[in-house]
Amino acid sequence: MFKGVWTFVFWCIVACLLAGCGTHYQWTKSHPAYTIPPFKDFAVIGAEKAFVLNRSAWFAKKLNIPPEEIQKHITGDCAKWLVQDLQKLYPEIRALPASLLDASPEESQQLDSRIFIKGKIPEQGIVLKDSTGYMPTRILIIHEAILGTDLNREDFFDYALIHNESPEKKTSKNLTAIVSYTLWDNEKQRALFNSIDQIDRPITHLSMTDMEQLVQSIAESMRSHLVEGAGR
């Protein structure tokens, strides 16, 4: 009878070891000063330059758009929808032109031991203002939004894996969006919250509505992570 108990304990230990040894990533990082999620005096920047479409030929065929136009078409639409969706969630949010960040150097920010996000963030000591002189206290900086099918965010952001070659056979079960963003404290010029979100939606019959809903999920995911990250 005791033998059974010991066997059970042994397998529990094995299971714990296996679970513990598996790679576990941390996809968000909060600054200790990030206690209140943004609501007022809030702006978004970078959406129009963030979107990248993976497998464009496949998307062109499925969406009946000429292959030479698909990149421009999809990324432009998605950027527009993302700003609109964010405006639904944050009525006071304002969009700043991405050109404000042109002068800033591209920098890496670490989320986990092997996870880094790369993107332009304002310099220390420099406050972002739009042409009207409006100075938001917090800015949502969208670095990159990758659209594709069946993507994994570790393949893009774990520096040990980014040089791996992609598999020969590409699958298309899910529509995937991977978005990396920073909540920027414009007053004190520091990153309050960094995150890489992955959103998957099953594909049944691909249409532009699916893309629109995917972008809507991006906005919702961003908002829930911004709330979760505060005060951690």
């Binding site: 200790p32 000063a33 310099e123 220390q124 000591g125 420099i126 004190k188 010029q189």
Partner: peptide
């Protein structure tokens, strides 16, 4: 240096690392 110094001024807060 001036920009960094000013930035440091308002980012030097208790419990910072």
């Amino acid at each position: 240096a001036l920009r960094y110094g000013n930035w440091l001024g308002y980012n030097l807060e208790p419990n910072t690392r």
